[in-house]
Design a protein around this nucleic acid. Structure first.
Length: 188
DNA sequence: TAAGAGATACTCT
DNA sequence: GAGTATCTCTTAA
């Protein structure tokens, strides 16, 4: 079951938590690469200084102000793409969830090749790594993730335990504990 | 195993 | 022109 708009039309932090254990699918050359989402971060709107959408709408962040369930891909540090999903309640002006880590399921060989690493755990245990492993670029920006296409998110497993931390790599809004993760080993 | 620095280009001021 | 929602390699212990 692909997650529908309603799933994303809730408070961003809640959606970030609920995305743990869900399945991310990327089609490439007719093959489905899939992975279980193991780490996420919530970025809201004007009430969140760390968010791209904290100040105002710009060319880059305008998707965060728009329709929920859309992908928000952006380029950072001169070489990495980040994958987000727009999620917000009707009260929020903007919001998105950063996918920070996945546990590879289908197409592990291809993802390994894309990354050029030996260890299974190094394939996609970071936001920049998983986009490389799955071949996600600006081409996947502003796509509808609630429809079965090149990129979508569907049901997965229910996490046994959820860990809550401060977000990573930011300088403002550090006090907000909006980083969520789960331990895949609990399930295998 | 931990800490530090460099790579690199895009976005916003 | 400064800062960046990161990763990898190198160095040292």
């Amino acid at each position: 079951m692909i997650l529908q708009k309603k799933f994303y039309e809730r408070e961003t932090v809640l959606v970030a938590k609920q995305l743990l254990g869900k399945t991310l699918t990327k089609k490439i050359h007719g093959i489905e690469l899939t992975g279980i989402i193991t780490e996420t971060e919530a970025y809201r709107g004007k009430d969140d200084p760390a968010s791209h959408a904290a100040v105002k709408k710009t060319n880059r962040n305008q998707v965060m102000f728009g329709q929920v369930g859309m992908s928000y891909v952006y380029f950072t540090y001169g070489m990495y793409f980040m994958l987000n999903v727009v999620a917000k309640s009707k009260k929020q002006n903007a919001g998105a969830v950063l996918i920070r880590g996945i546990h590879p399921q289908n197409g592990i060989k291809i993802m390994k090749k894309n990354r050029g690493v030996k260890n299974m755990k190094d394939i996609s245990n970071g936001p920049g790594k998983l986009t490389i492993a799955m071949g996600i670029t600006m081409k996947q920006h502003n796509k509808d993730l609630t429809k079965k296409s090149e990129l979508f998110i569907s049901d997965g497993i229910k996490p046994k335990k959820i860990y809550q931390k401060s977000r990573i790599g930011i300088s403002k809004g550090v006090e907000k504990q909006w980083n969520f993760s789960m331990n895949v080993k609990d399930h295998f």
